[in-house]
């Protein structure tokens, strides 16, 4: 049997402390231990980006990380981007621009976009495309996702 170990991190602004198997992936801790099922698994090999979360502000595929690799880090999942009454401008923009179809890629797309805009509030369309190029979407053809992110950048809104 694989032993357990203590795992501590800040997840969506809250301190979390758990005993977890050492080989557990970050995505499994988020989904199965913390009930944060907004983080989606699409491929399990880091190819699709659906499981993207922010670790200290940087986007990572949570299917490729062991939870213990992000010990004591600050983790943001889609559930931490907003509450129902207070959407992040990117979330509003995704709705307004029709950037959401099936919605499975949406959490990852939003978090990658947030990481981009936090660092570069006024990216070009090309910079947006490069930023989301690790995130697959099978429904939209990406146009409206790029539009939605551009619109927030143009507004210059930053949080």
């Amino acid at each position: 049997m694989i032993g357990t170990k203590s795992f501590e991190a800040i997840v969506n602004g809250e301190q979390v402390k758990l005993n977890i198997p050492q080989n557990l992936r970050l995505i499994d801790v988020l989904r199965n231990y913390l009930g944060l099922t907004g983080t989606k698994e699409g491929c399990g090999e880091g190819e699709c980006g659906a499981c993207t979360v922010l670790v200290d502000g940087e986007p990572y595929n949570s299917c490729l990380l062991f939870a213990l690799q992000v010990q004591n880090k600050n983790i943001l999942t889609i559930e931490g981007l907003a509450s129902y009454n207070n959407l992040h401008p990117l979330q509003e923009s995704f709705l307004e621009h029709g950037a959401v179809q099936c919605g499975y890629c949406t959490p990852g797309m939003l978090l990658v976009a947030k990481a981009l805009l936090d660092k570069n509030p006024n990216p070009t369309r090309e910079e947006i495309k490069v930023a989301i190029s690790g995130n697959l979407c099978r429904c939209t053809g990406y146009s409206k996702i790029v539009d939605a992110i551009s619109a927030v950048a143009e507004k210059g809104v930053k949080r």
Binding site: E47, N135, S143
Partner: peptide, 17 residues
């Protein structure tokens, strides 16, 4: 049977439509 070997378009494969 994997997205690393079965390639679907990424945003960089797409033109403006």
């Amino acid at each position: 049977p994997a997205f690393s070997s079965y390639l679907i378009p990424t945003v960089l494969d797409m033109p403006e439509i």
